[in-house]
């Protein structure tokens, strides 16, 4: 009995590493392939592009990673980002730079709302976030009148920072995303509530009885996810100087995929926030590389779906015999 348990623990520990190794090898192999097909793939210019494209995925993924770490899921990040992008465009034109804090607050609010609905009303996370996803989609459409909005040139000075590259090759946007990642990672590792998030994912019942604030940790995780999504939305808006009410939709899945490819287990408790960097990198390389080598962009969704499925499969506990999975 004891020894069976040992083997199982070992196996599940290796699974997280396995996923990371898979991601790492895929990243390298895919980069080499793309580079062979089109040498400009690893050119400075493209790397700069790649890092810029990666920024929204990264911030959304590290927020989502928090929720996945709980063993829950947030399906609303895509539309929160869309809504944030639209809000950003609208607000930049009306209140100027105040748009940034307001949209960030919106993200905190949207995330906290998910957390409260989930913990206080006991609504399963996927249904709560599926519902708020619908609500924010409606809001995005209402706010934009259903049409993509472009930012008026008068407001451009407020978003030009997104074009700035540090040392000529590292976009400021990416550095901003990195700061978010580091903060999220820090909270996860060095604060009590951050640690509680992870232990809730491993064993919610024990964490509760150990006298940790389980509900607080859950709300925090959802809040971070909403915040990450809103920052992602800001990035979309400042990058493209526009607010498209559907811009974030497919990024919900990309965020989840990036987190899982970085080693976060969808059933909770395992993985690290920081490693979502790897997942986000892999995803962006595929996205960007396919454009560079001229593969039909329509394949992307298929590839990412399959990649997500593979990552979930690799990353989950399958050898627990009596496990009931719904």
């Amino acid at each position: 009995m004891e020894s069976v348990k040992n083997i199982r623990n070992k196996a599940s520990m290796d699974r997280e590493t396995l996923t990371k190794i898979f991601s790492l090898i895929s990243t390298i192999v895919i980069s080499v392939v793309f580079c062979a097909m089109n040498p400009s793939f690893l050119g400075t210019k493209n790397i700069t592009n790649l890092l810029r494209d990666m920024s929204p995925v990264l911030v959304m993924a590290c927020g989502e990673a928090y929720v996945l770490m709980l063993g829950s899921i947030d399906l609303s990040t895509g539309t929160v980002a869309s809504c944030a992008a639209v809000m950003m465009t609208v607000l930049l034109q009306s209140v100027g730079a105040w748009a940034y804090p307001i949209v960030i607050l919106y993200g905190v609010f949207a995330g906290t709302m998910n957390g409260v609905l989930h913990t206080k009303l006991g609504v399963p996370s996927f249904i709560a976030t599926l519902s708020t996803q619908a609500i924010w989609q409606s809001a995005a459409y209402l706010l934009s009148g259903g049409q993509p909005l472009s930012l008026l040139p008068a407001a451009w000075p407020l978003v030009n920072w997104a074009k700035v590259n540090v040392l000529d090759c590292i976009p400021l946007l990416f550095l901003a995303a990195l700061v978010v990642l580091l903060i999220y990672s820090f909270v996860s590792r060095y604060t009590g509530i951050g640690r509680t998030v992870k232990s809730v994912g491993s064993n919610e019942r024990a964490t509760w009885l150990m006298g940790q604030n389980v509900h607080g940790a859950k709300i925090l995780a959802f809040m971070f996810s909403g915040l990450g999504a809103a920052i992602g939305g800001i990035f979309f808006a400042v990058k493209a100087k526009s607010g498209i009410p559907t811009v974030g939709v497919q990024y919900n899945m990309l965020g989840i995929a990036a987190a899982v490819l970085g080693g976060v287990q969808m059933t909770g408790g395992k993985g690290s926030i920081f490693m979502t960097l790897l997942g986000a990198l892999l995803i962006t390389i595929i996205q960007n590389g396919m454009n560079v080598v001229g593969v039909d962009g329509l394949w992307q969704q298929i590839i990412f779906g399959a990649l997500l499925l593979a990552a979930i499969f690799m990353n989950s506990d399958k050898d627990h015999k009596g496990l009931i999975v719904k």
């Binding site: 006991g122 399963p124 609500i135 989609q137």
Partner: peptide, 28 residues
């Protein structure tokens, strides 16, 4: 555009009413 939002609110209300409550229940 509001239809979806209305559905969203309905579903939350319906689930919240029908789901078993208890502070130590585990919901994921």
């Amino acid at each position: 555009y509001v239809q979806q939002a209305v559905q969203g609110m309905i579903i939350i209300a319906a689930v919240a009413i029908s789901i078993p409550h208890g502070k130590n229940l585990i919901v994921k």
